[in-house]
Design a binder for these strands. Structure first.
Lengths: 213, 213
DNA sequence: AGCGAAATCCCCCACATGGCCGATGCCACC
DNA sequence: GGTGGCATCGGCCATGTGGGGGATTTCGCT
C-alpha cells in the first residue's frame, strides 16, 4: 500500500473540513501520503504510536489536549517524528509554546498547497520552516526583552491578583492575614518592578499583558 | 453545467485548506453545487454579484473585510441569497454581529459534513440553523441583561479610558482641561454606574468587559 | 416654556495611597 | 559564616480618593 519513498503524514485537527482539505492537499502530491488522522491531542498520540509517521501536521488549539502538549508527548515516544505546528493564530505565546514543545516548523493556515508541501519535505529532511508572521512574533518577543512583571515574586503575584480584584491595601492585608504595612510594602514593590506609579496602571498592565492567571 | 434543482453555494474563507475541504463536502452531495469561492469579504461581494448563488458559507474573521460586513453588503445587493456564518469562534459578540448583519445561520467549524449539508438545505428553504454553542451564547447574553457600562455617557467613557491609562483625577482634569471637581464628579458617576467602589475595580471591569475602545 | 439630563464647578472630610526612612527574622547560596 | 533576597512589621507625610452636600449652565426634547 505505502510505497517506500513517500513521506507518511498524520493530520491532527478538530475540524472535519480542515482535515478534508489537508487530505486533498496531500493526495495531490505524489511524494506525500496520508498515514492517519486525529481530531485532538489524545487521538494524535495513539495514532502516531500506531502508524509511526514521518511528519505530523498539528493544529494547536483543540479540545481535550492542546497541540503543544500533544507534540511534546509524541516527540517523547516517537523521536523520529517531525511535528509541524499548523494554526490560524500568530500570537507570540503560541509560537513559543509550540517551538518549545519541539515543533520543527510553524505555519499559518493561509499557506498554499505548494508551501505546505515544501514545508513537509523540509521537515522530513530536518529543516525547519517558519511562517513570516511567526518569525515576526519571535523577533518582536526577543527585541521587547523579558515582559514586564517577569521579576515579580510569588507573593507579589498573589498581591497583584488581589489588586486586580479591586481590593484596597487594608483589604489585601486582611485577605493575606498580614499587617497593612506588609501589604503596602508588597504593593510598593510591585509598582516599582512594573515601572508604574499607581495601582491603576499596575492593574491595566497586569490585565493587558495577562500577568495574572 | 448547473442542473436546475441543485443549490448553488459560494464558499468564503481565507484559508485554502478550508475552502478545499468545504468543496469536497459539497461535491459529495448530489443536491449541492459549488458556484464560486472567495478569500475575503471584497472578493465575496464580487463573486456573489456575478454568480448569484443560493447560499453563502461565510467565514467571519478574514483580512480586508470582516465576514459580517461582507454579509451585510451581499444581502443588500443580492436579497435572494442566504448567508451562513461558519467560524471557529463562539464569542457572543461575533454571533450577535453576524446575525444582526443578516446571517440566517451560525455554525461552528467542527460541524460534520451531514450537519453542514442539512444546514445549507435548511437555509435555502429559509430555515435558520444555530450551533448549540451559538444558542448558548445568545441566551447567556439575554439573561445577563445589558452589560455593565451600558449607561455610561460619552464623556464618562472618555474619562474611563483615561482611568485605564493610569491617570489620577488631577491628571484627568488636566488632560480634559476641566477642573479637578469635574473629573472627580465623572469618576464618581462612573463608579456608581458600574456598581463598583473604587477605580481599581472599575479598571478591571472595563478591561475584562472591553468597555473601552 | 418647561423639564430633565449632562457637564461643569465648589467645599468638607475620613480614609487610602505611595514614597520615604527604618527594622527584624528566615532561608538559600556561595 | 557571611551575603543577599524575601517577607514581615512600624512610623511619617504629602497627596489622591471617594462620598456627602450643593450649585450653575447648556442642550435637547416635550
Amino acid at each position: 500500500m505505502s510505497e517506500p519513498n513517500r513521506i507518511r503524514v498524520v493530520i491532527v485537527d478538530d475540524h472535519d473540513m480542515v482535515r478534508r482539505g489537508l487530505a486533498a492537499f496531500l493526495k495531490a502530491k505524489a511524494d506525500l501520503e496520508l498515514a492517519g488522522e486525529a481530531r485532538n491531542g489524545k487521538e494524535a498520540l495513539l495514532v502516531c504510536e500506531e502508524v509511526q509517521p514521518d511528519v505530523v501536521l498539528m493544529d494547536l488549539v483543540m479540545p481535550e489536549m492542546t497541540g503543544a502538549a500533544a507534540a511534546k508527548l509524541i516527540l517523547e515516544r516517537c523521536p523520529n517524528v517531525q511535528v509541524i505546528a499548523l494554526t490560524s493564530f500568530q500570537e507570540r505565546e503560541l509560537v513559543q509554546e509550540a517551538l518549545e514543545a519541539g515543533a520543527i516548523s510553524y505555519l499559518l493556515k493561509n499557506v498554499s498547497a505548494e508551501e505546505l508541501a515544501e514545508a513537509i519535505r523540509a521537515a522530513h529532511a530536518g529543516r525547519p520552516t517558519l511562517a513570516p508572521e511567526a518569525t515576526q512574533a519571535l523577533i518582536q518577543a526577543a527585541s521587547e526583552g523579558p515582559r514586564p512583571g517577569h521579576d515579580l515574586t510569588a507573593r507579589e503575584r498573589e498581591v497583584l491578583a488581589l489588586m486586580v480584584e479591586g481590593l484596597t491595601n487594608p483589604g489585601i492585608a486582611e485577605r493575606l492575614v498580614v499587617s497593612r504595612s506588609t501589604a503596602k510594602a508588597h504593593v510598593s514593590n510591585i509598582l516599582s518592578k512594573l515601572g508604574v506609579s499607581n495601582r491603576a496602571e499596575a492593574i491595566a498592565l497586569a490585565l493587558q499583558h495577562k500577568l495574572i492567571t
